[in-house]
């Protein structure tokens, strides 16, 4: 037996454990159940909220994470990298408590926020913030790796050929790293879509206001397993569509020429 086959054989059980639950979920849900769930106003509200908040969280993440990732890629900053990785190693529930202790009424920034007339906890802004924080490492670290592929000499060549610092960056660094940036954004978006723990603790589970799809599953579990299953399948479909769609976008960019 070849080494490659042996590796696949050894990894197969893990692959099965990863894929089987999704198969079980989808197989156990009939189209009628799915239609009923989609027709329910609660589910629609949760779906709409999830799509809007995750789109905003991803957009904010790309806007702030791209320059941060570029800066990280240009040098060695192990402590900053560790800080960015923090949400990966901390449980989302811990992030939720931490957000509350920072932006809550009695939190670190509670007084100045209150003075400005802002109250974050249990609001839609809190939903977005929780998603942003837990998804950030996926985008920033992927983007950093993509930017690492852009050498100083490539930028220097672009500069010598007439581009200023920003011009060289937009003409060379950004397009060269784009497939990686798109991939990172897709991962981050999917993670934001699935965000549960931090949202529950920091934003609550208020129907129509902060109840995203994962929280809708949680709420439905208390009433009716079939409904929870249907919403879960819906979430799988949205996440898959997102991943596949963005991947297609990235590879189409990459395939020609």
């Amino acid at each position: 037996m070849s080494g490659r086959r042996l590796a696949l054989l050894a990894g197969l059980p893990l692959l099965v454990v990863l894929v089987l639950p999704v198969v079980g979920l989808v197989a156990g849900t009939g189209p009628a159940e799915l239609r009923a769930a989609l027709a329910a106003p609660d589910t629609r509200a949760a779906l709409g909220l999830s799509l809007r908040t995750t789109a905003l969280a991803t957009a904010l993440l790309v806007a702030g994470g791209t320059p941060l990732a570029w800066w990280l890629s240009r040098g060695r900053h192990p402590r900053v990298v560790a800080a960015v990785q923090l949400p990966v190693v901390l449980p989302p529930a811990v992030m939720g408590v931490a957000l509350l202790e920072t932006f809550g009424r009695h939190g670190l920034l509670g007084a100045p926020l209150a003075a400005a007339g802002l109250s974050l906890p249990f609001s839609r802004a809190a939903v977005v913030l929780a998603q942003l924080v837990v998804a950030a490492p996926l985008y920033v670290l992927t983007a950093q790796a993509a930017f690492r592929g852009v050498s100083e000499d490539a930028l220097l060549v672009a500069r010598t050929l007439g581009r200023g610092p920003l011009g060289a960056w937009t003409a060379v660094a950004l397009p060269a790293a784009l497939p990686g940036l798109v991939g990172g954004a897709a991962l981050a978006w999917a993670r934001a879509l699935g965000e549960f723990g931090a949202t529950l603790l920091f934003a609550g589970n208020l129907p129509g206001r902060t109840r995203t799809l994962p929280l809708a599953i949680y709420a439905a579990m208390e009433r009716d397993l079939a409904e929870a299953r249907a919403v879960a399948v819906l979430l799988v479909a949205v996440a898959l569509a997102l991943l596949v769609g963005l991947r297609l976008l990235a590879t189409r960019e990459d395939a020609d020429g």
């Binding site: 220097l156 010598t160 007439g162 581009r163 060269a176 960019e253």
Partner: peptide
């Protein structure tokens, strides 16, 4: 600045723009 020097630079690793 590099853009004002009128340079044509061929680096060791070519550094063609991949896109």
């Amino acid at each position: 600045p590099p853009e004002a020097r009128g340079v044509g630079y061929l680096p060791q690793h070519h550094e063609l723009f991949p896109h």
